[in-house]
Each structure stands twice: as structure tokens, then as C-alpha cells.
């Protein structure tokens, strides 16, 4: 069954023709061409496919396109603030929070969501929030560091307006 849906994708209202059974992940990558969102396990365990759906981090590999009419979706391609990288992106680069980079888009989306909810997370808060994001290069120490540094920068941006 195909269906015409309206979504807001990375801030832009778009209307797309979707097949109801298509996964959001495949809609993004194969139909719309936003290949930053990755498929890892395909079963909701690894978090590589994390996107924000109506402001909340979710696994796009477990969502059917047919239910998305009216949804607001943010992917890694929409993380930048204007022309500037988002502070979590900058911190991951600066701290070496990526090795092969495959898990990075998911890590970044989850980190952004965490810092919006909790601007001053402890290391344990960060590890708890990222427990559904798997890094097979085992780079967690630097990832946690990057999220902490991004938190500092985001708080600074906020106080300086």
C-alpha cells in the first residue's frame, strides 16, 4: 500500500509517497537519500539508526513509514546549527570520539537528546543514556569525554545567550 504523508524533515515540511511497510531507516536512506543514518543490527540493539522522532531518540530500523503522517524527524544531516557544526559534533571531532565512525551518527543524535533533557549529566548519566548505542571500536571513554565537553560548551552558549 502506498500512502502520501506529510513530514517535517530536518526542519523542512515535505510530502512523500511511501509504502506503508517501508522502514523509516530505508525511507531516509534509499528514497530521500539521507545516508548519514546507519543500519547496524537491524533489531534495535545497536542504536546506529537513531533519529529524533517528534523530539525523542528512537531506532529508525523499527518504525514503519505508514504511521508517520505528521511526524517531525531530525537526522544527523539536520544536526548542524546554521552553517556551524553542533557542539556535540565539534566535541566528538576534538576528543577523538569516533574511530571507524559507523556508530557516530547514532551516538550524536542520542547525545544531543540527552543534553537537551539534562544539560549537566554525570559520567553515569551519559553511560546510562548511551547504553543503546554500541561502538565496536570500543571507544567509549572518548565518547563519554566528548559528551561532557559538549555539555560544557552548550551551557556556555546558553549563559552567553
Amino acid at each position: 500500500m502506498t500512502k502520501k504523508i506529510q513530514i517535517t524533515l530536518n526542519g523542512k515540511k515535505t510530502s512523500v509517497e511511501v509504502q506503508a511497510h517501508r522502514l523509516l531507516l530505508d525511507l531516509l536512506r534509499d528514497e530521500i537519500g539521507l545516508t548519514g543514518t546507519k543500519e547496524g543490527c537491524g533489531t534495535g540493539d545497536c542504536g546506529a539508526c537513531t533519529v529524533l522522532l517528534n523530539g525523542k531518540p528512537v531506532n529508525s530500523c523499527l518504525i514503519l513509514s505508514g504511521e508517520l503522517d505528521g511526524a517531525e524527524i531530525v537526522t544527523i544531516e539536520g544536526l548542524k546549527i546554521g552553517p556551524e557544526l553542533h557542539p556535540v559534533q565539534k566535541a566528538f571531532i576534538q576528543d577523538g570520539g569516533a574511530q571507524c565512525g559507523y556508530c557516530t551518527p547514532g551516538m550524536l543524535m542520542m547525545s544531543k537528546a540527552l543534553l537537551e533533557e539534562n544539560p549537566n549529566p554525570t559520567e553515569e548519566d551519559i553511560r546510562f543514556a548511551l547504553s543503546g548505542n554500541l561502538c565496536r571500536c570500543t571507544g567509549y571513554a572518548k565518547i563519554v569525554q566528548a559528551v561532557q565537553d559538549a555539555a560544557v560548551e552548550l551551557r556556555r552558549m546558553k549563559t552567553e545567550g
Partner: peptide
């Protein structure tokens, strides 16, 4: 990973 088969979706 295998994909869902075509289906109809309703949103009552």
C-alpha cells in the same frame, strides 16, 4: 536484515 512484507496500515 530481512524487511517487513507489504501491508496496509490503518490509523483509527
Amino acid at each position: 536484515m530481512r524487511r517487513p512484507e507489504p501491508l496496509e496500515i490503518f490509523q483509527p
